[in-house]
Design a protein around this nucleic acid. Sequence first.
DNA 1: TTGTATGCGTTATCAC
DNA 2: GTGATAACGCATACAA
Lengths: 346, 346
Amino acid sequence: MAREDQRQSIAEIVADRAKVSRAAVSRAFNPKAPLRADKRELVLRIAEEMNYVPNMAGRALATQRSHLVGVIVPHVCSPWESLEIDALTTALQDRGFATLLFKTRIDRSLDPKLLSYMRAYNPDSVVVFTENVPPDQLHRAFDQAVPVYVDYPNEATDPGPLPESGMHRFDCLRVLQRDGIEQAVALLSGFGRRRFAYLAGNPKAQANTARLRTLQQVLAARGLPPAAVVEGDFSYQRGHDAIIELFRGGPGAEAVFAANDVSAFGALDALRHALGLRVPEEVSVVGFDDIDQAAWRSYDLTTIKIDVEERVAALVRLILQRLQNRAAPPLVETIRTKLVVRSTVA
Amino acid sequence: MAREDQRQSIAEIVADRAKVSRAAVSRAFNPKAPLRADKRELVLRIAEEMNYVPNMAGRALATQRSHLVGVIVPHVCSPWESLEIDALTTALQDRGFATLLFKTRIDRSLDPKLLSYMRAYNPDSVVVFTENVPPDQLHRAFDQAVPVYVDYPNEATDPGPLPESGMHRFDCLRVLQRDGIEQAVALLSGFGRRRFAYLAGNPKAQANTARLRTLQQVLAARGLPPAAVVEGDFSYQRGHDAIIELFRGGPGAEAVFAANDVSAFGALDALRHALGLRVPEEVSVVGFDDIDQAAWRSYDLTTIKIDVEERVAALVRLILQRLQNRAAPPLVETIRTKLVVRSTVA
DNA sequence: TTGTATGCGTTATCAC
DNA sequence: GTGATAACGCATACAA
């Protein structure tokens, strides 16, 4: 009857059908925007029928909030990281944020090109699993988004999350390794183990250096000799080969700490199948992380657990609090490790 | 000197410093837009200095291309899926697309709410790893984005990718199971195995039903008795327990096909540690996927491999070709499986 | 409450 | 090749 308009957007059609303005449609989707309840209901119903949802790009432009959280990882397919991505995605999704996934190249270093590539999407926040990128660099790259930094403090010297100490200029998640390591060393020590080895992870990864540092501190505190260190890279294969080198080339060890569970599996298989040693009778093995595979019967690995859910919950708190108040002082969350005892220690 | 403008955007500042128009800055970042080479270079240099990159939200609005690819998975942390997400993210990133990750709830079914949630981000394409969602529903949900459907055809009846057959109304990746299964059955048959069992995955997953169907067809073609089927869900634990039920409650089997590698590991551990049977001497085990863990020494699993790189390359071809030509007839890519022989078969 | 008008950052169209 | 200008889809300040 009336003349057709040039070309209507879906949102406008929804508005027309509900006999409201385009603005009302927008408000209907924003729970705290003022709109009469029945109108909101009507608009939402019609929108549903027409399969209309507000476009995030438009919304991002108007509100300066992309509802995107950038996540940068070296390997999605590493078990621990996939576990964390899984939990993080779920938690963010529940809160209306989508996960934007990026992968670093070969090594764990962060290509500046990747950063600006990511910047283009204007994520509201950024989580970087690559541990060797200085937080300053991150903050320089993301003037808008607020990166969350994972910190592995030296627990022997770092006083902890005291804002006065001036050490924490950025939001960070502090991962404390000591508890689990102390428990593991106590257990091994109780079984009479004295000669320790540390199967390292990627030397650039802070998780690796923090674990080694803490282990040596804990051993020293007990008057035990320092652990022999063998180079590794967090991988199964390297863990496997490194342990063979360690035991073929020298006196071996009575207890092996691996920098993560996956390399602990490599160590276990090397000890049992390549070297013909019995675990735990002849050699004890302890891992880090407690990924699903650690409970598999063929490994049944005693390991120092980081609770993924706890860790992700802390990350999400950091992200959301910062988003709520851009100007707040640096936030700190702290998580701890604990020993999970299975059958690779005796 | 001259009066300051109200408030300049970063892009405008870049334009000013390069003494060009705002439009020229935009063109500088679009390689095929017309712009004198030296101007382009100058703009890019200044932009680099000022840490400016074009905003994707704005670009998406103007071009109707978000450069986002939505990926929906049930579990990020399942080894096979994390492998695929990893490869897909890398491939897409290289081509200027970012991966937008979403997770389905508990079961593998697709919440319609998740679909519209995702629609809001206007992904250019959508890859759904959840296999029990009918492609029609997907196409209805994404009028703009073009979902890629993973198809597991019945290889005994489906003539293949003939457009004339009218069966393929949507772009799809056809995964053919037969080759690897035929090879595995030939090998097992050559070792004298006759009593087969199939440790199922999630009954709703097409990967599961296709593997079972094909296995039975291959066995029948050789005149072998059909495989006994035990219920499973792709998990280690269920694989472990199901095998115990199978062997405690009846005659067991001479060869076990597991619907995926992870449940094959559960089966292996159950056979060896809970049932005290020798693998491969007393029971042979074959998995599906060939994830990294299949090569680990404690399992060393003979498995039917799907090449991730090949699969992802095919997916990316589908996505990019469709984006290049929205109106093209349905695209089909086909990949096959092949047997990887390790030590769980004899 | 509601509608109108404007701006968010970008690209495309159109003149030059 | 280049610069002005009008969209793109949304949220909001402001006026009603």
